[in-house]
Protein backbone atom coordinates (compact mmCIF):
# COMPACT_ATOMS: atom_id res chain seq x y z
CA UNK A 1 0.00 0.00 0.00
CA UNK A 2 1.73 3.12 -1.25
CA UNK A 3 -0.60 5.51 0.48
CA UNK A 4 0.55 4.51 3.97
CA UNK A 5 3.29 7.08 3.74
CA UNK A 6 0.90 9.67 2.31
CA UNK A 7 -1.43 9.27 5.24
CA UNK A 8 1.44 9.57 7.69
CA UNK A 9 2.54 12.79 6.00
CA UNK A 10 -0.97 14.23 6.15
CA UNK A 11 -1.32 13.41 9.84
CA UNK A 12 1.91 15.23 10.54
CA UNK A 13 0.93 18.35 8.63
CA UNK A 14 -2.53 18.51 10.22
CA UNK A 15 -0.92 18.17 13.65
CA UNK A 16 1.42 21.04 12.88
CA UNK A 17 -1.48 23.22 11.74
CA UNK A 18 -3.42 22.45 14.89
CA UNK A 19 -0.46 23.51 17.00
CA UNK A 20 -0.38 26.85 15.23
CA UNK A 21 -4.11 27.44 15.57
CA UNK A 22 -3.93 26.46 19.22
CA UNK A 23 -1.21 29.04 19.82
CA UNK A 24 -3.20 31.70 17.96
CA UNK A 25 -6.24 30.87 20.04
CA UNK A 26 -4.29 31.42 23.23
CA UNK A 27 -2.82 34.70 22.00
CA UNK A 28 -6.27 35.93 20.97
CA UNK A 29 -7.69 35.02 24.39
CA UNK A 30 -5.03 37.08 26.15
CA UNK A 31 -5.50 40.00 23.81
CA UNK A 32 -9.25 39.88 24.28
CA UNK A 33 -8.90 40.09 28.04
CA UNK A 34 -6.55 43.04 27.61
CA UNK A 35 -8.92 44.82 25.24
CA UNK A 36 -11.76 44.43 27.70
CA UNK A 37 -9.54 45.75 30.48
CA UNK A 38 -8.76 48.87 28.47
CA UNK A 39 -12.45 49.41 27.77
CA UNK A 40 -13.16 49.26 31.49
CA UNK A 41 -10.41 51.72 32.38
CA UNK A 42 -12.13 54.20 30.10
CA UNK A 43 -15.15 54.45 32.38
CA UNK A 44 -13.93 56.86 35.11
CA UNK A 45 -12.91 59.33 32.41
CA UNK A 46 -16.25 59.02 30.63
CA UNK A 47 -18.29 59.50 33.78
CA UNK A 48 -16.21 62.53 34.77
CA UNK A 49 -16.84 64.02 31.36
CA UNK A 50 -20.57 63.55 31.96
CA UNK A 51 -20.17 65.22 35.35
CA UNK A 52 -18.55 68.29 33.88
CA UNK A 53 -21.09 68.52 31.08
CA UNK A 54 -23.78 68.22 33.76
CA UNK A 55 -22.36 71.19 35.68
CA UNK A 56 -22.27 73.17 32.47
CA UNK A 57 -25.91 72.37 31.73
CA UNK A 58 -26.95 73.34 35.22
CA UNK A 59 -25.25 76.69 34.95
CA UNK A 60 -26.31 77.71 31.50
CA UNK A 61 -29.80 78.77 32.45
CA UNK A 62 -31.35 77.29 29.32
CA UNK A 63 -32.10 73.78 28.25
CA UNK A 64 -31.21 73.70 24.62
CA UNK A 65 -27.91 74.68 23.23
CA UNK A 66 -27.00 75.27 19.67
CA UNK A 67 -23.82 73.78 18.36
CA UNK A 68 -23.08 72.43 14.89
CA UNK A 69 -22.31 69.04 16.37
CA UNK A 70 -25.79 68.80 17.85
CA UNK A 71 -27.83 69.87 14.85
CA UNK A 72 -29.16 68.07 11.85
CA UNK A 73 -28.15 69.95 8.78
CA UNK A 74 -28.46 69.55 5.05
CA UNK A 75 -25.63 71.34 3.37
CA UNK A 76 -23.76 68.85 1.26
CA UNK A 77 -26.18 65.94 1.43
CA UNK A 78 -23.30 63.59 2.22
CA UNK A 79 -22.86 61.17 5.05
CA UNK A 80 -19.49 59.99 6.23
CA UNK A 81 -19.28 56.35 7.18
CA UNK A 82 -16.47 55.24 9.47
CA UNK A 83 -15.95 51.51 8.96
CA UNK A 84 -14.00 49.88 11.76
CA UNK A 85 -12.61 46.51 10.72
CA UNK A 86 -9.66 44.43 11.81
CA UNK A 87 -6.16 44.71 10.43
CA UNK A 88 -5.70 40.99 10.16
CA UNK A 89 -7.82 38.13 8.95
CA UNK A 90 -8.44 34.70 10.44
CA UNK A 91 -11.24 35.93 12.62
CA UNK A 92 -14.20 34.11 11.14
CA UNK A 93 -17.03 35.95 9.42
CA UNK A 94 -16.53 39.09 11.52
CA UNK A 95 -15.42 41.51 8.81
CA UNK A 96 -17.54 39.93 6.11
CA UNK A 97 -20.73 40.38 8.12
CA UNK A 98 -19.92 43.97 8.94
CA UNK A 99 -19.01 44.87 5.37
CA UNK A 100 -22.14 43.21 4.04
CA UNK A 101 -24.19 45.60 6.19
CA UNK A 102 -22.10 48.52 4.99
CA UNK A 103 -22.59 47.63 1.33
CA UNK A 104 -26.30 47.06 1.82
CA UNK A 105 -26.72 50.59 3.16
CA UNK A 106 -24.51 52.05 0.45
CA UNK A 107 -25.76 54.82 -1.83
CA UNK A 108 -24.26 57.76 -3.67
CA UNK A 109 -24.45 60.05 -0.65
CA UNK A 110 -21.92 58.04 1.33
CA UNK A 111 -18.26 58.84 1.70
CA UNK A 112 -16.14 56.31 3.51
CA UNK A 113 -13.41 56.50 6.09
CA UNK A 114 -11.88 53.12 6.68
CA UNK A 115 -10.20 52.13 9.92
CA UNK A 116 -8.45 48.82 9.45
CA UNK A 117 -7.01 47.09 6.44
CA UNK A 118 -9.85 44.67 5.75
CA UNK A 119 -12.42 47.41 5.27
CA UNK A 120 -10.13 49.40 3.03
CA UNK A 121 -9.45 46.44 0.77
CA UNK A 122 -13.13 45.79 0.15
CA UNK A 123 -14.12 49.44 -0.23
CA UNK A 124 -11.24 50.11 -2.59
CA UNK A 125 -12.09 47.05 -4.67
CA UNK A 126 -15.69 48.19 -5.01
CA UNK A 127 -14.42 51.64 -6.02
CA UNK A 128 -16.34 53.42 -3.29
CA UNK A 129 -15.73 57.02 -2.42
CA UNK A 130 -12.95 56.48 0.10
CA UNK A 131 -12.11 59.74 1.84
CA UNK A 132 -9.37 58.51 4.13
CA UNK A 133 -7.85 55.33 5.38
CA UNK A 134 -6.40 54.76 8.82
CA UNK A 135 -4.44 51.85 10.16
CA UNK A 136 -4.28 51.15 13.84
CA UNK A 137 -1.85 49.31 16.04
CA UNK A 138 -2.92 46.21 17.86
CA UNK A 139 -3.57 48.17 21.03
CA UNK A 140 -4.72 51.59 19.88
CA UNK A 141 -4.21 54.45 22.32
CA UNK A 142 -6.49 57.42 22.79
CA UNK A 143 -4.17 59.65 20.79
CA UNK A 144 -4.28 57.23 17.84
CA UNK A 145 -8.03 57.29 17.89
CA UNK A 146 -8.06 61.04 18.38
CA UNK A 147 -6.14 61.49 15.14
CA UNK A 148 -9.07 59.88 13.37
CA UNK A 149 -11.80 61.75 15.21
CA UNK A 150 -9.97 65.03 14.80
CA UNK A 151 -9.80 64.42 11.07
CA UNK A 152 -13.51 63.61 11.00
CA UNK A 153 -14.40 66.74 12.97
CA UNK A 154 -12.25 68.90 10.75
CA UNK A 155 -13.89 67.65 7.58
CA UNK A 156 -17.26 68.06 9.25
CA UNK A 157 -16.50 71.68 10.05
CA UNK A 158 -15.43 72.25 6.47
CA UNK A 159 -18.88 71.05 5.47
CA UNK A 160 -17.79 68.01 3.50
CA UNK A 161 -20.57 65.98 5.05
CA UNK A 162 -23.63 66.53 7.23
CA UNK A 163 -23.55 63.45 9.39
CA UNK A 164 -21.12 60.79 10.54
CA UNK A 165 -21.93 57.21 11.35
CA UNK A 166 -19.76 54.37 12.57
CA UNK A 167 -20.02 50.75 11.54
CA UNK A 168 -18.40 48.48 14.07
CA UNK A 169 -18.75 45.08 15.65
CA UNK A 170 -20.53 45.38 18.96
CA UNK A 171 -19.19 43.04 21.59
CA UNK A 172 -22.04 41.08 23.17
CA UNK A 173 -20.09 38.16 24.55
CA UNK A 174 -17.24 35.94 23.48
CA UNK A 175 -19.43 34.01 21.06
CA UNK A 176 -21.56 36.85 19.72
CA UNK A 177 -20.51 40.01 17.95
CA UNK A 178 -23.14 42.08 16.21
CA UNK A 179 -22.41 44.39 13.28
CA UNK A 180 -23.84 47.70 14.41
CA UNK A 181 -24.44 51.12 12.92
CA UNK A 182 -23.91 53.98 15.33
CA UNK A 183 -24.71 57.62 14.55
CA UNK A 184 -21.77 59.70 15.79
CA UNK A 185 -22.63 63.17 14.49
CA UNK A 186 -25.01 64.88 15.10
CA UNK A 187 -24.45 63.88 18.68
CA UNK A 188 -27.54 61.94 19.67
CA UNK A 189 -29.72 62.69 22.64
CA UNK A 190 -28.63 59.45 24.27
CA UNK A 191 -25.03 60.54 24.60
CA UNK A 192 -25.86 63.69 26.52
CA UNK A 193 -28.75 62.20 28.44
CA UNK A 194 -26.68 61.44 31.52
CA UNK A 195 -25.12 64.88 31.46
CA UNK A 196 -28.52 66.54 31.07
CA UNK A 197 -30.03 64.55 33.90
CA UNK A 198 -27.09 65.40 36.17
CA UNK A 199 -27.42 69.04 35.23
CA UNK A 200 -31.12 69.17 35.96
CA UNK A 201 -30.70 67.38 39.27
CA UNK A 202 -28.04 69.85 40.28
CA UNK A 203 -30.16 72.80 39.26
CA UNK A 204 -33.22 71.72 41.22
CA UNK A 205 -31.07 70.93 44.22
CA UNK A 206 -29.55 74.39 44.08
CA UNK A 207 -32.99 75.96 43.85
CA UNK A 208 -34.13 73.99 46.84
CA UNK A 209 -31.21 74.96 49.07
CA UNK A 210 -30.91 78.62 48.13
CA UNK A 211 -33.05 81.15 46.30
CA UNK A 212 -30.14 82.72 44.56
CA UNK A 213 -30.35 80.47 41.57
CA UNK A 214 -28.25 77.68 40.26
CA UNK A 215 -24.94 79.48 40.00
CA UNK A 216 -22.40 77.14 41.48
CA UNK A 217 -19.31 77.24 39.43
CA UNK A 218 -17.33 79.87 37.72
CA UNK A 219 -16.20 79.15 34.23
CA UNK A 220 -13.18 80.02 32.27
CA UNK A 221 -14.14 80.80 29.48
CA UNK A 222 -17.99 81.05 29.57
CA UNK A 223 -20.13 77.98 30.09
CA UNK A 224 -21.41 78.12 26.49
CA UNK A 225 -17.94 78.37 25.02
CA UNK A 226 -16.69 75.65 27.31
CA UNK A 227 -19.49 73.29 26.34
CA UNK A 228 -18.56 73.90 22.71
CA UNK A 229 -15.04 72.79 23.59
CA UNK A 230 -16.35 69.83 25.52
CA UNK A 231 -18.58 68.42 22.78
CA UNK A 232 -15.74 67.36 20.47
CA UNK A 233 -14.45 65.32 23.40
CA UNK A 234 -17.65 63.33 23.33
CA UNK A 235 -16.92 62.53 19.69
CA UNK A 236 -13.31 61.59 20.50
CA UNK A 237 -14.46 59.42 23.36
CA UNK A 238 -17.28 57.72 21.46
CA UNK A 239 -15.01 56.78 18.58
CA UNK A 240 -12.34 55.50 20.93
CA UNK A 241 -14.93 53.44 22.74
CA UNK A 242 -16.13 51.90 19.47
CA UNK A 243 -12.60 51.14 18.33
CA UNK A 244 -11.84 49.39 21.59
CA UNK A 245 -15.05 47.42 21.36
CA UNK A 246 -14.24 46.40 17.79
CA UNK A 247 -10.87 45.20 18.98
CA UNK A 248 -12.43 43.12 21.73
CA UNK A 249 -14.85 41.67 19.17
CA UNK A 250 -12.03 40.90 16.77
CA UNK A 251 -9.98 39.05 19.34
CA UNK A 252 -12.89 37.02 20.65
CA UNK A 253 -14.00 36.17 17.11
CA UNK A 254 -10.47 35.07 16.30
CA UNK A 255 -10.32 33.03 19.47
CA UNK A 256 -13.52 31.19 18.57
CA UNK A 257 -12.45 30.69 14.95
CA UNK A 258 -9.11 29.29 16.05
CA UNK A 259 -10.75 27.04 18.62
CA UNK A 260 -12.96 25.60 15.87
CA UNK A 261 -9.94 25.12 13.65
CA UNK A 262 -8.08 23.31 16.42
CA UNK A 263 -11.06 21.06 17.10
CA UNK A 264 -11.46 20.30 13.42
CA UNK A 265 -7.79 19.46 13.12
CA UNK A 266 -8.02 17.11 16.07
CA UNK A 267 -10.99 15.32 14.54
CA UNK A 268 -9.14 15.07 11.25
CA UNK A 269 -6.10 13.55 12.93
CA UNK A 270 -8.36 11.02 14.61
CA UNK A 271 -10.00 10.04 11.30
CA UNK A 272 -6.69 9.85 9.51
CA UNK A 273 -5.15 7.71 12.25
CA UNK A 274 -8.03 5.29 11.94
CA UNK A 275 -7.59 5.13 8.20
CA UNK A 276 -3.85 4.69 8.64
CA UNK A 277 -4.30 1.78 11.04
CA UNK A 278 -6.80 0.12 8.74
CA UNK A 279 -4.41 0.43 5.82
CA UNK A 280 -1.57 -0.90 7.96
CA UNK A 281 -3.59 -3.90 9.06
CA UNK A 282 -4.73 -4.58 5.53
CA UNK A 283 -1.15 -4.61 4.31
CA UNK A 284 -0.06 -6.97 7.13
CA UNK A 285 -2.95 -9.31 6.39
CA UNK A 286 -1.97 -9.27 2.77
CA UNK A 287 1.61 -10.14 3.60
CA UNK A 288 0.58 -13.06 5.84
CA UNK A 289 -1.74 -14.25 3.13
CA UNK A 290 1.07 -14.14 0.60
CA UNK A 291 3.52 -15.95 2.90
CA UNK A 292 1.03 -18.65 3.91
CA UNK A 293 -0.09 -19.27 0.33
CA UNK A 294 3.55 -19.47 -0.77
CA UNK A 295 4.23 -21.95 2.05
CA UNK A 296 1.20 -23.98 0.97
CA UNK A 297 2.50 -24.08 -2.58
CA UNK A 298 5.94 -25.29 -1.38
CA UNK A 299 4.41 -28.01 0.76
CA UNK A 300 2.71 -29.62 -2.26
Amino acid sequence: MANLRDIRRRIKSVKNTSQITKAMQMVAATKMRRAQQVAISLRPYASKLDDIAGHLYANMGKDEISHPLLQKRNKSGKTAVVVITSEKGLCGPLNTNLLRDVIKADDSSKVYISVGKKGRQVLARLKKNLLADFELKDTPSFSDSKTISRFVLQKFEEGQFDAVEIYYNRFVNTLTQVPTRYPLVPIGAGVLEVAKALGEAERSEALATSNKGPIFHNFEPDADVLLGKLLPYYVHLELYEKILESRASEHSARMVAMKNATDNAKQLVKDLTLEYNKARQASITNEILEISSAAAMMAK
Binding site: I52, H55, L56, F216, H217, N218, F219, P221, L226
Partner: peptide
Protein backbone atom coordinates in the same frame (compact mmCIF):
# COMPACT_ATOMS: atom_id res chain seq x y z
CA UNK B 1 -1.42 79.23 34.51
CA UNK B 2 -3.27 79.09 37.79
CA UNK B 3 -2.32 77.97 41.25
CA UNK B 4 -5.03 76.18 43.17
CA UNK B 5 -5.04 76.05 46.95
CA UNK B 6 -7.64 74.48 49.23
CA UNK B 7 -10.84 76.54 49.54
CA UNK B 8 -10.57 77.66 45.95
CA UNK B 9 -13.87 78.80 44.49
CA UNK B 10 -15.72 76.30 42.33
CA UNK B 11 -14.45 76.56 38.80
CA UNK B 12 -14.48 74.62 35.57
CA UNK B 13 -11.81 75.49 33.08
CA UNK B 14 -10.14 74.39 29.93
Amino acid sequence: DMGVLPQHEALITQ
